[in-house]
Simulated assay, not measured.
Amino acid sequence: MSTLLELSGVSVSFDGFKAINNLSFQIGEPELRAIIGPNGAGKTTFMDIVTGKTKPDEGRIVFGEKNISLIGMSESKIAREGVGRKFQKPTVFEQQTVRENLAMALKNPRGPFEVLFYRKTKLGADRIEALAEQIGLSDELTRVAGELSHGQKQWLEIGMLLAQEPRLLLVDEPAAGMTPAEREKTTSMLVEAAKTRAVVVVEHDMEFVRRLNCKVTVLHEGAVLAEGSLDHVTQNPEVIEVYLGR
């Protein structure tokens, strides 16, 4: 497994508060990683920095075999390099069908002509069918996205990100607001996606993290406090004090 993303010595302050403090982190490809930590630990800022939404004050962030620096790169350019991000609240095109949502997200030429005639390609249609199966929405392709349940909308958004074929997928609290059955399905989906790419899941729900059965990074005050299996990190006295003891 080769390293896909590496952050070293990254810091960022907001009005004197260090949201990220000399953070070093790396993930391979393929790999599934969970990031946990108390509120204010820097989890969201970490994702903002990797996706170009926030520029760090210092440190380096390199991506891919050529060690491309992501610092100073625009959010859209970072997305084109292969970094996809799913926010907590699902953002899908409510008025469009599931099929249309997936079609718009496919990694294709983006001109108006191509968008108008996307249905014409067999390859695109096959890819949409495969994605729909992957996210458990094969039977919902003709449904308008606005009619889907909260969990189904989350899956559709994951499908739309997978349609862009990212090498790194950042997923923010996917289990929030889901039924137990939906959470189980989401677990399988993320585990499956991580067989061919790097997937980072930021999550509060420890039961969900346990089911992911992957390496866990614990953030505290903008730095890595502990790393390892969930059992390993939850037995760490410092982790117990700052996180589990609350």
Results as ranks from 00 to 15, higher is better:
residue 165 E to P: 06
residue 213 N to Y: 06
residue 151 G to K: 02
residue 4 L to A: 07
residue 4 L to Y: 05
residue 140 E to Y: 11
residue 17 F to V: 15
residue 224 V to M: 09
residue 239 V to G: 06
residue 205 D to H: 09
residue 228 G to M: 11
residue 29 E to L: 11
residue 77 K to C: 02
residue 188 S to E: 15
residue 20 I to L: 15
residue 212 L to M: 09
residue 9 G to R: 14
residue 104 M to D: 01
residue 227 E to S: 13
residue 81 E to Y: 14
residue 32 L to F: 09
residue 167 R to V: 03
residue 23 L to A: 05
residue 228 G to K: 04
residue 228 G to F: 06
residue 101 N to C: 06
residue 72 G to A: 12
residue 244 L to D: 01
residue 44 T to F: 10
residue 42 G to K: 01
residue 91 T to G: 04
residue 109 P to D: 14
residue 84 G to W: 01
residue 188 S to Y: 11
residue 194 A to W: 03
residue 65 E to L: 05
residue 36 I to V: 15
residue 204 H to P: 08
residue 98 V to A: 00
residue 48 D to S: 13
residue 165 E to V: 02
residue 151 G to D: 04
residue 245 G to K: 15
residue 229 S to N: 12
residue 119 R to G: 06
residue 211 R to T: 03
residue 130 A to V: 03
residue 175 A to E: 03
residue 149 S to T: 15
residue 225 L to W: 03
residue 205 D to S: 09
residue 214 C to E: 10
residue 197 R to S: 10
residue 134 Q to S: 04
residue 150 H to N: 11
residue 82 G to N: 08
residue 170 L to S: 07
residue 7 L to G: 01
residue 174 P to R: 01
residue 160 M to H: 02
residue 217 T to A: 12
residue 163 A to Y: 00
residue 193 A to C: 09
residue 184 E to T: 12
residue 159 G to Q: 01
residue 155 W to A: 07
residue 193 A to F: 02
residue 195 K to V: 05
residue 137 L to C: 01
residue 12 V to G: 02
residue 128 I to L: 06
residue 8 S to Y: 04
residue 100 E to S: 00
residue 17 F to P: 00
residue 201 V to K: 07
residue 76 S to Q: 13
residue 16 G to S: 14
residue 124 G to H: 14
residue 174 P to C: 10
residue 161 L to M: 14
residue 136 G to C: 05
residue 30 P to F: 08
residue 68 I to E: 15
residue 163 A to V: 10
residue 166 P to T: 06
residue 93 F to M: 12
residue 218 V to R: 02
residue 223 A to M: 10
residue 157 E to D: 11
residue 18 K to G: 04
residue 202 V to G: 00
residue 238 E to D: 15
residue 166 P to W: 07
residue 97 T to S: 08
residue 175 A to S: 15
residue 211 R to Y: 01
residue 118 Y to M: 11
residue 198 A to T: 05
residue 151 G to I: 01
residue 94 E to F: 08
residue 197 R to Y: 11
residue 152 Q to G: 03
residue 28 G to N: 14
residue 239 V to R: 08
residue 181 A to Y: 12
residue 180 P to T: 07
residue 157 E to K: 06
residue 168 L to S: 02
